[in-house]
């Protein structure tokens, strides 16, 4: 599949590199297909590029990168559109907003993206418990929890209930 982008030119990508968002994103209901592009190998950030609009791209990152305690407990039914049969297939990313001064960048912890890596479907999951802000200023907040490097259990940012 050929994806036109203003940032990276024309990309030739395999169909299995595409993620389908059956609901789109809030405000972008008509954008159903996105490509996820690593920024660099070392960078914790990724681009999520619309396959339908060359100009539309979001910056994503793993919320655990700056909030090691970030966790959402979703009901299976709420994620039905991405068919979450196995919790371990689910991966959570958050959308970054980067203003002119990058130090003011924020992460949307209120409405994370949930991906099912098994079927490459994604959705924006809206948290209703108000536990996390829509703008989490990652450079200003102190990470409330410290990641223990000796902890062999990979922290999971999502569980099904």
């Amino acid at each position: 599949m050929r994806v036109e982008t203003v940032r990276f030119g024309t990309l030739e990508v395999a169909d299995d590199q595409i993620f389908t968002f059956p609901m789109g994103l809030l405000g972008f209901a008509n954008h159903k297909e996105f490509l996820i592009v690593d920024h660099t190998h070392e960078s914790p950030f990724k681009w999520m590029q619309s396959c339908e609009d060359p100009e539309l791209a979001f910056i994503l990152t793993d919320p655990l990168f700056f909030r090691a305690d970030y966790h959402i407990a979703a009901r299976k039914g709420e994620l039905q559109i991405i068919d979450p049969s196995n919790e371990l297939d689910l991966v959570v990313s958050v959308i970054m907003t980067v203003p002119d001064d990058p130090k003011d960048m924020s992460a949307n912890l209120l409405a994370p993206l949930v991906f099912n890596m098994a079927n490459r479907r994604g959705m924006q999951y809206v948290l209703t418990n108000n536990r996390y802000p829509v703008k989490y200023y990652v450079m200003r907040e102190k990470d409330p929890s410290v990641v223990d490097p000796t902890n062999s259990v990979e922290p999971r940012s999502i569980s099904l209930r």
């Binding site: 405000g27 972008f28 950030f45 809206v126």
Partner: peptide, 26 residues
């Protein structure tokens, strides 16, 4: 809630390609 997230999504799109270098460096 809808408006809040809608606004956040729209605000998150206006980013140029070089910005990721600067935030990655931070």
């Amino acid at each position: 809630l809808y408006r809040k997230i809608h606004q956040a999504n729209i605000g998150a799109t206006s980013t140029d390609v070089n910005i990721l270098d600067s935030i990655s460096n931070l």
